[in-house]
Simulated scan of single mutants.
Amino acid sequence: MDKNILDGCKKNDPQSQEKLYRQFYPAMFALCKCFFSDNHDILTAVNNGMLKVFRNIHQYDPAKGELFNWAYTTVRHAALTLIRDKKTKLTFELNENNGDAVINNPFKQLEWKDIYYYLDLLPANTRYVCSLYYLEGFSIKEIVNLIEMKEGTVKWHLNECRTRLKIIFEQHSARNRNIG
Rank of each mutant, 00 (worst) to 15 (best):
I115C: 02
N97H: 14
K64T: 05
E96G: 13
D100H: 11
L90C: 12
N12Y: 13
S131Q: 05
P14S: 07
G49K: 04
A174I: 09
N104K: 11
D114M: 06
S173Y: 15
R127E: 01
K19P: 12
M149G: 01
E170N: 09
E170Y: 10
T88Y: 04
N97W: 08
K87E: 04
A71C: 15
A79Q: 03
K108A: 09
A45G: 01
L132P: 02
D85M: 10
V75E: 02
N56L: 09
S131R: 14
D61I: 12
Y60M: 13
N176S: 15
H77F: 10
C130I: 05
T126Q: 05
L67T: 10
Y21V: 13
D61S: 10
N178S: 15
N95C: 13
R55V: 15
L6P: 08
T74A: 08
Y116H: 11
Y133Q: 06
D41K: 11
S173E: 13
A27Q: 13
S139V: 10
A79P: 00
K87Q: 05
T81H: 12
K10C: 08
K33N: 00
L90P: 02
V53L: 01
T163W: 15
W70N: 05
V53A: 01
V53Y: 02
N159R: 09
T163D: 14
I5C: 08
T73H: 06
N105V: 02
S139C: 02
N105A: 07
L122P: 00
T126N: 04
I5N: 06
Q23A: 15
V154Q: 01
E148H: 13
G137A: 13
E93N: 13
L135S: 02
C130E: 04
R84E: 01
K52V: 09
D7Y: 14
G8L: 08
L43T: 02
C32S: 00
K10F: 08
A79H: 00
K11S: 10
A79T: 00
K19L: 12
N48D: 07
E66C: 10
H157L: 02
A79G: 00
E96S: 14
K166Y: 03
K166I: 01
N48A: 09
G99V: 10
N159H: 06
A124T: 03
N178H: 14
A30T: 11
V46H: 04
G137V: 14
Y116P: 10
K52C: 11
Y117K: 12
Q109G: 10
L43Q: 06
I167M: 07
